[in-house]
């Protein structure tokens, strides 16, 4: 495909994706909007912005395809990757997509408890009037509800992994595409992070350290999401992985009381970084697998 045309399409997509989210969020910040009230409950306006933001990458993709006359193919090269194919062991990658977030979340929280054991607190879970062993069902509940409510994940993945990543790969090769794509995805979240999304506002180095931590996380997640997309030629596994990740599917997670953390471990950025170390490792593995597949494809062609 013509690289100049690809660059043009990518640029249009990025302009739409960022404009649709950055403009309302920055306006909200400019007019003094807050993230949460005194009790920590998200304010309705930011709730609304976050809800709509999930769909903006897909809207941007549709607009870009319409303007640049790229077409709306469901499957195949240059398509929206909306097909679902379970043959040739692709079903394994659907399962991987569902279980991977559970694996890295559980191991992330286990690692966190090694650093900050006092955060392991069953009393928080006991307030929900559920027996302690019910925590074991949280991952399966999150997976099922994430599949049912995966339109949010689909709203992002149709844009990022379904449209942006193939174009970045064509322009820069897979390794740089994953890093650049992860950075773009992370930067896209910056206005929400500035307001307090994920890390709050009361941490050392806010908001810049939060920006940095989040970008590292998005690069690692981008590698995993891109891998499952390329293995299945479909954005559905990525949508499921994204949804399960956002649901925080972890039994240990519901037994974690972050308020009991002390010293440097009371920093939200430190908490996020430590709990995401397993995800970072998996992201590196995903990157290696992507590069290996790219080399095999090059040799075959």
């Amino acid at each position: 495909m013509n690289k100049k045309e690809t660059k043009k399409r990518l640029l249009i997509f990025l302009i739409f994706s960022f404009a649709l989210v950055w403009i309302p969020t920055i306006l909200y910040i400019a007019f003094g909007g807050q993230y949460a009230d005194e009790d920590g409950i998200l304010l309705p306006a930011i709730n609304y912005i976050l809800m709509c933001s999930m769909l903006c990458p897909t809207i941007a993709m549709v607009l870009t395809r319409k303007i640049t006359k790229e077409g709306f193919a469901i499957t195949g090269k240059g398509s929206m990757l909306l097909g679902m194919d379970f043959k040739n062991k692709k079903w394994i990658w659907f399962l991987v997509a569902l279980l991977l977030p559970v694996a890295y979340r559980e191991s992330g929280y286990a690692l966190w408890f090694a650093f900050s054991p006092q955060c392991f607190d069953t009393s928080l879970f006991a307030k929900s009037n559920l027996p302690i062993y019910a925590a074991a069902f949280v991952p399966i509940l999150c997976i099922v509800s994430s599949i049912i409510g995966s339109f949010g994940g689909l709203g992002e993945e149709a844009g990022w992994r379904g449209y942006m990543m193939p174009k970045l790969e064509e322009l820069f090769g897979i390794r740089r595409a994953v890093i650049i794509g992860g950075v773009i995805w992370g930067v896209w979240h910056y206005p929400a992070l500035y307001l307090g999304h994920n890390f709050g506002t009361d941490y050392w180095g806010a908001p810049w350290l939060g920006f940095l931590c989040f970008t590292i996380i998005t690069i690692a997640l981008n590698a995993m999401l891109t891998l499952v997309t390329k293995k299945t030629d479909s954005i559905w596994p990525a949508a499921f992985l994204h949804a399960v990740n956002n649901a925080g599917a972890s039994s240990l997670g519901v037994l974690c009381n972050f308020a009991l953390a002390k010293g440097i471990f009371a920093q939200t950025t430190v908490f996020s970084t430590i709990t995401f170390i397993p995800a970072l490792i998996l992201g590196i593995i995903a990157m290696v697998l992507l590069e290996r597949d790219a080399r095999h494809t090059t040799i075959e062609s």
């Binding site: 009037n129 559920l130 027996p131 062993y133 019910a134 069902f137 399966i140 509940l141 099922v144 509800s145 599949i147 049912i148």
Partner: peptide
């Protein structure tokens, strides 16, 4: 028996 409700919620769609 909230665990039963959770199981129903998780297992029924499957």
């Amino acid at each position: 028996h909230p665990v039963v409700a959770i199981l129903l919620e998780a297992v029924a769609p499957v």
